[in-house]
Computed example of a mutant assay.
Amino acid sequence: MTAVPETGLDDASKRTPEPELDPEGRGKAERYTVFAFVFIPLLALAAAVPVAWGWGLTMTDVAIGVVFYLISGLGITVGYHRHFTHGSFKANRGLRIALGVAGSLAIQGSVIKWVADHRRHHKYADAEGDPHSPWRFGDDWRSVAKGLYYAHMAWLYLDEERTSPKRFAPDLLKDKDIRLVDKLFVPLVVVSLGGPALIGGLVTMSWWGALTAFFWAGLVRVALLHHVTWSINSICHTIGEENFEVRDRSRNVWWLAIPSFGESWHNLHHADPTCARHGVLKGQIDISARVIWTFEKLGWATKVRWPNAERLEAKRVSA
């Protein structure tokens, strides 16, 4: 298996000490800030659903949206993240190409750019050089709010230090199949947005059906998946539980586990980045790990890096 650069365990020389927490002061401010940042937009979307149901939203739109969410979301978590970024398993050529295409349908950037940015994040997590740490502006509630916005989405266009693919993703640059998938990103964006509209129009045999499918299964689906993925960058580095020792502020956020397909068990991931399973403790649902397990059983994935009990125990936080 080709060596994957910049994906080892956290380097102590690249870290800064974590500041002491003030559970009575800053802790509450952080929770309220996160609540406002995340739940208010979701409540607005939830309120729109019953208003639109029946005339602007149908079960056809929901079904198409769910299918595209699963394909593109797992393309990000299993493909872009666990396979291409961290080398958690080796995929045969067909699966490797399919994962690259599926991840591109999430419209979060081309595969090489996404991988380079994420490897850079791991190298400098929550320290200078991290492209999207929520702690870059300080620890008071105003700084946390600003940092959450930056880590969530603003870094995509405000990050002054552009990630070098030659440094962080040279293995992908040498892969002709992945280079082709990377070049086809714009056409795949058209497929991701136009596909639901085409299917919706054909199923309902109407332009209205095409329009509503485009809106809900295209635009809304992409926006929802974006925010779930970005929440791993922002929320999972701000609040949550620490079950394993890390040199950054990555945490587990249980209520994001299902929509993120297991990515929100982020604390273990930063403790052991190449592990194919992130939810390793009892009750931690990890859909992406189950998908990788299925690929392994089918013979499409090999050399899967499943959790090592001794390695995990050595990193457990003392009760």
Score class of each variant (00 low, 15 high):
2 T>F: 09
3 A>T: 06
5 P>N: 00
5 P>T: 01
6 E>V: 04
11 D>Y: 00
12 A>Q: 11
14 K>G: 09
17 P>G: 14
20 E>K: 14
22 D>A: 13
23 P>R: 04
28 K>N: 14
33 T>G: 13
34 V>L: 09
36 A>P: 14
41 P>I: 07
42 L>F: 13
43 L>F: 14
44 A>W: 07
49 V>H: 09
56 G>M: 09
60 T>W: 10
60 T>F: 15
61 D>V: 00
62 V>Q: 05
63 A>W: 03
65 G>Y: 05
65 G>M: 01
70 L>E: 12
70 L>N: 11
71 I>V: 13
71 I>K: 06
73 G>F: 02
74 L>C: 10
77 T>I: 08
78 V>R: 02
79 G>Q: 02
81 H>G: 10
82 R>V: 11
85 T>W: 02
85 T>N: 03
87 G>P: 01
88 S>W: 03
93 R>F: 06
93 R>H: 08
94 G>W: 04
95 L>A: 07
95 L>Y: 11
96 R>H: 09
97 I>D: 00
97 I>P: 04
100 G>R: 01
103 G>F: 03
110 S>P: 10
110 S>K: 07
111 V>P: 02
112 I>P: 04
116 A>F: 00
118 H>F: 00
123 K>G: 01
125 A>L: 02
125 A>K: 04
125 A>R: 05
128 E>P: 06
129 G>A: 01
130 D>T: 02
132 H>W: 12
135 W>H: 15
147 G>M: 09
149 Y>K: 09
150 Y>K: 06
160 E>G: 12
161 E>C: 10
161 E>R: 13
164 S>C: 04
170 P>Q: 04
171 D>K: 01
172 L>I: 03
172 L>R: 02
178 I>K: 07
184 L>N: 05
185 F>G: 09
191 V>R: 13
191 V>P: 07
192 S>H: 00
192 S>A: 14
210 A>S: 08
210 A>I: 01
211 L>C: 13
212 T>L: 01
212 T>I: 08
219 L>K: 15
220 V>G: 03
221 R>S: 03
222 V>L: 15
224 L>R: 05
226 H>G: 07
232 I>Q: 00
236 C>T: 15
245 E>C: 13
245 E>A: 10
246 V>W: 12
247 R>E: 15
255 W>N: 13
255 W>D: 04
256 L>P: 09
258 I>D: 02
260 S>I: 12
260 S>D: 08
261 F>S: 07
263 E>Y: 09
263 E>N: 05
264 S>N: 15
265 W>F: 12
265 W>T: 06
267 N>K: 05
268 L>V: 09
269 H>F: 03
269 H>G: 14
271 A>G: 15
276 A>I: 10
278 H>L: 08
279 G>Q: 03
282 K>T: 10
283 G>L: 01
285 I>F: 06
286 D>E: 03
286 D>N: 11
291 V>F: 03
293 W>P: 01
296 E>Y: 04
296 E>F: 02
300 W>E: 09
307 P>R: 02
307 P>C: 08
309 A>P: 06
318 S>W: 01
